[in-house]
Amino acid sequence: MIERHKHPVPEAAHKVGESTVEIGGRYLRNVLGLEDHLERHQHKKFGIRMFFSDDSNDDITRRAEIGHSAFPPHKVISYQLDRGRLDHHRLSLVCDDGAERRIAARWVVDATGRSSTIKRQLGLVKKVEHRANAAWFRIGRPIDIDEWSDDPGWHDRIDDQVPYSERELSTNHLMGPGYWVWLLRLASDAISIGIVADADMHPFSTMNRFEKAMDWLRENEPECARVVERHRDKLQDFRVMKNYSYGCEQAVSSDR
């Protein structure tokens, strides 16, 4: 692997791809042998959770909620990954005699993401009709969605006697017409917050700077905006991605 980023990288303010699904968790834990790292240095994910819009989005307890009431008992679990913390985990190939060895790869895998180095060189760019944009940032303080209300009935929906059964450990989504906002707790005591929106309903120009994104939150998710505002002095980064969906005409080559 040839990595273009200099190390060490910051923990929270590094890159997205923080919320894993179960098959990804199994791969990291069982296939790559990272169970000790995941258990000691990352958060277990309390599933996906969605809060659907009411008229004002000003009271979390009035929103329809879908999510676990208790952490599942099975061992097929997923994780909320602090990507900088994970990417610092290094592996080296050392032979029995103690010497490091170079390996001639039988395949070349283009893992350059959106830059798509090989795809562009070979003219394999595929047009995608899905038009959506994203903006996200990290705040260097844990924001617990459970603290947004002291309503006992709302809190009683979650069985807090079961370990890891905490709303803040879910991949939380605030859902609205043409958008969703994620809130994702990270192990470095930061939180990742992102806006994903349909380009026709929510123009990219309304959220492509932090102040604009805050204005957008005040209009669409005022309860979330108030919490972020209280901790904006701990802003770690702000990133955007326009038309994030992309495709490729061919995934595997006979030339390897």
Rank of each mutant, 00 (worst) to 15 (best):
D160G: 09
R185M: 12
L183Y: 00
M201D: 12
F238G: 10
K75W: 00
L28I: 03
V76Y: 09
E147N: 13
K75P: 03
L184H: 04
F238H: 09
E18Q: 13
A135P: 06
R102G: 07
E147P: 00
A111R: 03
E129M: 08
E3H: 04
V181T: 15
L186T: 00
T117E: 11
F71D: 03
I103T: 07
A213V: 05
G24D: 01
R232V: 14
C95Y: 02
S69F: 02
V128D: 06
R49C: 12
C224Q: 08
F46S: 04
R63E: 14
H37G: 01
P163T: 06
D215K: 14
L184V: 07
L91S: 13
P222A: 05
L186A: 03
G123F: 11
L34Q: 09
V128C: 14
E3M: 06
L169M: 10
V128M: 15
H202G: 13
T61S: 15
V21A: 06
K75F: 01
Q80M: 02
K119G: 02
G247R: 04
Q121T: 03
M201T: 12
I118D: 02
R90G: 01
H37R: 02
W180V: 10
L86T: 07
S92F: 04
G247M: 05
P73N: 09
I60W: 06
S53G: 06
H155D: 06
S192G: 11
N208M: 07
L174C: 08
K44A: 08
V228L: 15
R131V: 04
V16L: 09
R167G: 01
G25K: 05
A135R: 02
A225I: 06
R49K: 02
Q236W: 01
L38V: 07
E35W: 01
P203W: 10
G123D: 08
